[in-house]
Design a protein around this nucleic acid. Structure first.
Lengths: 105, 105
DNA sequence: CTTATACTTAACCACATGGTTAAATCAGAA
DNA sequence: TTCTGATTTAACCATGTGGTTAAGTATAAG
């Protein structure tokens, strides 16, 4: 979870995730949209790999990267769970206020 | 977005968010579950504040912190959007494979 | 007025992050 | 084999992160 959220905390890496959403990409494909040196790109990719979001496969002299959405799913689940709890809290508050209003009559 | 995901990339801070989900809490309330010095706690809270996830209000000599879920909502939206795109991609692939199978007859 | 409580600030530390340039490897093409 | 393109490694740099201890400030309570 730490690594997943950490990986998503950078715009370059979020862009890479979005790019990989449309299909596989080589390292240089991933580098192309970003005005940045190759080594810098490599480090970003490495973080995505460490977070389990990306898998690398060496094909000839190029490396093909593809997305694994499982960590995204988990992160999403955490957020959803918390937002749900938040909403339940306010639903309970609303119910309480409605009951109070009823008693005022 | 960077700051939101960055804030969530630490277990201590995620625990704080979860705690604040149940209602307001003072700095020492937030510190209590964690075996950590007050200054360390302060830094975590500061990050949550910077990310817009938490608001602080000084009440007497204590500071009351409360949660703001808007950034969580945005983060959730980003993830959901990406997961949706991913699923559409596979739906399209499934449809294609079904069509192929049809043509094989 | 003094003291205890709640928080803050300052100063420091080791290590991580996000970037660079320059040089090295590795595999396909000529 | 030699050239070329794709990636990698090494070394370096500035800044950020996550923690510490020690000392400071501010406010409620005695």
């Amino acid at each position: 979870m730490d690594q997943t959220f950490g990986a998503l905390a950078d715009p370059t890496r979020r862009a890479m995730v979005a790019q990989l959403l449309t299909g596989e990409a080589s390292i240089s494909d991933l580098a192309e949209p970003h005005d940045m040196s190759l080594p810098a790109i490599m480090k970003h990719v490495a973080k995505l790999v460490d977070a389990g979001l990306v898998t690398r496969e060496k094909r000839g002299r190029t490396v093909v990267c593809s997305l694994n959405v499982d960590p995204l799913d988990q992160a999403n689940a955490w957020l959803q769970q918390n937002l749900d709890a938040w909403n339940r809290r306010f639903d309970a508050l609303d119910a309480y206020l409605a009951r109070q209003k009823e008693e005022d009559r």
